[in-house]
């Protein structure tokens, strides 16, 4: 670095330098970076175990420098429970998509949260199944056309989009639940703050913590990256309000 210059941006060393294979404009990459920055700031490399189930982010088995477990579709909270109960000194996270967490894995996430399992879930809500090519997710908004809702999502057939943060915050087990977004630098900073609080909850042994992050899928939404960000602001954030849904004392 040239003398007199201050380094304001540094790549996190918690990510491998493997070429990321997410689509251009996908916010999975930003979320990885923010997550790793917080881990690095809190110096958690040697304690961290992340559990990655199935979705586009399965590719992340190669992206994190710290210990990683690949889990069956939807079962990450159960696998993480096993990791944590066997070795409570581990710092344990799950990184789940909305199909994974809110559809096939509903039982696992509800019960991990309800037990107050001392783990942290990063919940990436892009309102669609990315990996499998754009099917309807439980979080898909009304009217959205997808591969399996070709005429648009309809409540009488498909039910209404699930608000997971609101639902889980009704339970006694969770210590921290927040919803953030990736649509703007401001909200990305907000995401980072929320992740830090969630991590603190785990480090203090306060119970289950989750950050739901609103994200995009330009490929399967069938739009440019720019339009997809606008869609988060115009549609997703309206149905899924940002904010902290549960903060117990002591965080």
């Amino acid at each position: 670095m040239t003398e007199g210059m201050k380094q304001i941006f540094k790549n996190t060393t918690y990510l491998t330098d493997m070429q990321r294979s997410y689509c251009p404009g996908c916010t999975h990459g930003v979320i990885h970076r923010v997550l790793c920055e917080v881990l690095e700031e809190m110096n958690l490399m040697e304690k961290s175990v992340i559990v990655i189930p199935v979705g586009c982010s399965t590719l992340a088995v190669d992206y994190f420098e710290f210990d990683t477990v690949q889990a069956p579709h939807g079962r990450a909270p159960a696998v993480a429970t096993g990791v944590k109960r066997a070795a409570p000194e581990n710092f344990v996270m799950t990184y789940q998509g909305d199909g994974d967490l809110a559809s096939i894995g509903t039982a696992e996430i509800v019960h991990a949260a309800n037990r107050g399992e001392n783990i942290t879930t990063i919940f990436v809500n892009n309102g669609i199944y990315g990996m499998t090519g754009g099917q309807m997710a439980p979080t898909t908004l009304m009217g959205w056309k997808t591969e399996t809702s070709p005429y648009g999502r309809e409540a009488s057939r498909d039910g209404n989009p699930i608000r997971v943060s609101e639902m889980l915050s009704q339970l006694n087990g969770p210590a921290y639940i927040a919803r953030t977004s990736t649509d703007s630098p401001k909200n990305i900073i907000g995401t980072k703050k929320a992740i830090r609080k969630a991590f603190q909850a785990q480090l203090k042994g306060l119970g289950f913590s989750m950050v739901e992050i609103l994200s995009n899928c330009p490929t399967n939404w069938g739009m440019s990256a720019v339009d997809s960000i606008k869609r988060i602001q115009d549609e997703t954030m309206k149905y899924y309000p940002l904010g902290e849904y549960k903060v117990v004392e002591g965080i």
Binding site: G99, S103, I104, Y129, M131, T132, G133, Q135, E147, T148
Partner: peptide
């Protein structure tokens, strides 16, 4: 059904 490749 439920989505899974290669039968989507």
């Amino acid at each position: 059904g439920y989505p899974i490749t290669p039968q989507n």
